[in-house]
Computed example of a mutant assay.
Amino acid sequence: MAIKITDECINCGACEPECPNNAIYEGGVEWAVSDGTSVKGSFTLIDGSVVDADQKNEPLSVDTYYITANKCTECQGFHEEPQCAAVCPVDCCVPDDMYQETVEELISKKDRLHL
């Protein structure tokens, strides 16, 4: 499953540079699939909708850092554990129960993000 950032976030920003998929954004910042990935053209999101990789999407949070599940792979294929959770000083990077994905699905997502 993807990782999410809870309301306990203190906006320290330690997590953002650690994400190999650039799935972490500062509150209020729009996100795009192409940010920090090699994706060009169309990309299918978790909900099945197809977007242009460069399309700017609404921020998922305005007040705190957030993780877009569409790009989060729990660092599968890069690290032994999610790096955001490893560096978070207040332990607010936790599994997101809304997005149940197997390791195989996470690796496949990683492969689609980094051609």
Rank of each mutant, 00 (worst) to 15 (best):
E58Y: 11
I10T: 07
S61C: 11
E105N: 09
N21G: 04
C88A: 10
M1C: 00
N57W: 14
G41A: 04
T64I: 06
E74N: 14
S108D: 09
L106P: 02
I10H: 07
Q76F: 15
P17S: 10
E58Q: 12
D91C: 11
P95G: 07
I107W: 02
L45E: 07
E26W: 01
G48T: 04
A69C: 10
V90M: 01
T37Q: 09
G41K: 03
D7C: 00
Q100F: 09
V50P: 11
H79V: 03
K71P: 08
A32M: 08
C84H: 08
P95I: 04
C15L: 14
H114C: 03
A32G: 11
K40Q: 09
C19H: 08
V29T: 07
A53S: 06
I5T: 06
C84V: 00
H114E: 01
A23C: 08
N11W: 00
T6F: 01
A85M: 14
A53D: 11
A23G: 12
E8L: 05
H114T: 05
I67S: 07
V39H: 00
V90H: 01
L60W: 12
A86R: 13
C92A: 04
A53K: 15
S61V: 07
V103N: 07
A86Q: 15
A86P: 00
S42I: 02
L115Y: 12
Y25H: 08
T44R: 14
I3V: 10
G13I: 12
E58N: 13
H79C: 04
I46D: 15
V94Y: 05
N21L: 10
C84R: 04
C75W: 03
N22E: 11
V87T: 10
Q100N: 10
C15Q: 11
G36P: 03
D97M: 14
P82N: 15
P59T: 11
C93Y: 00
V33G: 00
E8A: 14
I67W: 04
C9S: 13
T68F: 10
C92P: 01
K109T: 09
S49K: 09
D63P: 09
A53F: 12
S61H: 12
E80Y: 11
N57D: 10
P95K: 12
C84D: 01
V94E: 03
